[in-house]
């Protein structure tokens, strides 16, 4: 068993589907964060079998934790202060996501217009569908 020391103050993103931890790390741009960040892959889980976990020291103010739910619907977010969980969050899907994903439609104006931020709007919360605001192409992880 691998041991990662507990957090005194920070954020734990738990119940990430196994294999998606790095995606979340990347979309939240945690590489730009100066404090300690631990990614635990394939941790044992009674609910999920295997899961990924991200532990972030401190609470970075530059990230929108709701973005996590766009990438993975199973996550829970625990806010830790003084070594105890003070808040459990189930992130809600943001209405619009800008500057995180890129539209892959070669016919979209974003493919040629420089400096245009790629932006997606939530069009169906039930199917968790996001579409490009310009061409309406569905965003997919593939």
């Amino acid at each position: 068993m691998l041991n990662i020391s507990g957090l005194n103050s920070g954020v734990v993103i738990d119940h990430i589907k196994a294999g998606r931890g790095m995606d979340i790390y990347s979309y939240l741009e945690l590489d730009k964060y100066d404090n300690s960040v631990a990614i635990i892959k394939n941790a044992k889980s009674s609910k999920m079998g295997k899961k990924d976990i991200i532990k972030i020291e401190g609470i970075p103010d530059f990230i929108d934790l709701n973005l996590v739910s766009v990438i993975c619907d199973s996550v829970t977010i625990n806010i830790i202060r003084g070594g105890v969980i003070i808040e459990k969050k189930e992130p809600s899907l943001p209405e619009q996501v800008t500057g995180i994903f890129r539209c892959k439609n070669p016919r979209c104006i974003t493919s040629i217009e420089q400096d245009l931020p790629h932006s997606f709007r939530l069009t169906n919360p039930h199917t968790r569908t996001y579409r490009c605001i310009y061409c309406e192409q569905e965003w997919s992880r593939a």
């Binding site: 439609n105 016919r107 104006i109 974003t110 040629i112 217009e113 245009l116 310009y134 061409c135 192409q137």
Partner: peptide
């Protein structure tokens, strides 16, 4: 009119 989708929105 533009061949790229979403150009008028821009």
């Amino acid at each position: 009119r533009h061949p790229k989708e979403g150009a008028p929105m821009v």
